[in-house]
Design a protein around this nucleic acid. Sequence first.
DNA 1: GCCGTTTTCGGCCCGACTGTTTTCAGTCG
Length: 575
Amino acid sequence: MTKLNKKDIINALESIAVYLEIKGENSFKVSAYRKAANALERDERPLDKIDDPAKLPGIGKGTATVIQELTTTGESSLLNELRKELPPGLLPLLKLPGLGGKKIGKLYNELDVVDAESLRKACEEKRVQVLPGFGEKTEEKILAALNASGKRPERLPLAVVIPVAEVIIDRLKEMNGIEQFDIAGSFRRTMETVKDLDFIIATDDPTGVGEQLVSMANIAAVSGHGETKISMELQFDDLVVPVDFRLVKKHEFVTTLHHFTGSKEHNVAMRQRAKEKGEKISEYGVEIEETGKIATFDSEKSFFHHFGLHEIPPQVREGKDEITLFEQQDYPFIDVQDIRADLHMHTTWSDGADSIEDMVEACRRLGYEYMAITDHSRYLRVANGLSPDRLKRQHDHIRTLNEQLPDFTIFTGVEMDILPDGTLDYEDDLLKEIDFVIASIHSAFQQNKETIMKRLQTAMENPYVAMVAHPTGRVIGRRDGYPVDMEKLIKMAAETDTILELNANPNRLDLSAEWVKAAQAAGAAIAINTDAHRLDWLRHMSVGVKTGIRGWLKKQTVVNTWSAEKLRKFLQQKR
DNA sequence: GCCGTTTTCGGCCCGACTGTTTTCAGTCG
């Protein structure tokens, strides 16, 4: 028997839900299995620490029995039964847009469709359009979806859609008849990847605004155009981004924004809370059932207040325990206003695009009190890494600049490579002269976990290394990074007083939110830095801060919210 | 299938849009 882990069991429950859906089972029964899978996923304990799954909300007798069976035998008789009954090739069909359980069930029962290939054949032979509930258009759409499937990634990295969102925002600002707009969805929650972009627009003239929207540039297709909702695909070179617009009245804006910000689970939890006090939440407001009156709000803050809650930031609206937590107290989240420095950036001295002077000027304009210039060390030749001599010259230059700025501090710094053999790129004699030494891995990603951990350990134990940058080396949607034992790394960071970076570049977001949470809990210090290689990347700070909020990051944990003096003292105690 | 000091039965979050219909089912978020 193969031992199943928690993820396997969650997947099994989800498969059962999909099979039942195709079978045409009661939709509430179907969602009961999905809910059970969710409940298991949301609980942070490992499987063997959950002695009675039926105690979790959403898991009852039936699903608990299935979980029990999966844990003890590695199989589920229900799932086995369903697999015998229905061809597994039907499951992926649910991903095709426009096809749900009911339609797939019909296709299977009436046309013997068993997988994508037989579905394609049925469409090509025009057997689908004659089924009741189907038609010519449905058949065309299915065929188009089959041809498109697999060609496009299901979710797009945040970094890829940020520029698209910015273009749309600029266009909305130019349009007539828009009173207010904001972006919602997983983009607003600062998820690492998003499926589409959702914009909420307040207007008295939905028809006029709708016409302007569908005549925008870069539209590849308009897939839906109704009174209050317009769906389209925008195309920029090879990149296709699905975008939804919701058009509502000004007084409905806040509840619509909240609704489409989600998450779905958060909304469900909020609605349950509303129901308990005899109210009903929809995107158009809160209906007081007794009087039939609809309450609307002028801010999300007052919306949450209405339910006896402090304002919950979008980034933690996950439907976990945030709602009960915000009943009692506010939470001291980090805020972008708290940031007083950026401690990781590059200039023309290595692979940056802009001069030291320009970076300094930009940081001053951002309202920072101090900063660190951290170009690459000599090992990174492709990035024009600095020899000890060039580094010393650069630091002399920085000190001169610093003297001219009475109200601002530039830390000398470097992003020093941790070499493949585990040694550091510079000697201690040189390092001890530098204010802020970052250690990073940029090479030999394929080494095993033990070797990588040895390298990181050497860096962290060095008294002059202030911080480890982008701790896992991942690039979202492109590469996983090198193998790191994160729990051990976090423990070492706390023990050696080495700062861990939350790299704010939206391609990296490294540490990820979940590890931010773990690092803070373990007492490690965190810095949020942009790693800017050009002036306009300095603006990524807010993405980093929002990712921190997703990890429940508090202001006090973040070293670049401290004063320059406090940070210097912290660095000194390690030396 | 899950849930419950108003309920152990009868609800389950709610609404928009499309393509099929000829008043609505299915899908989606």
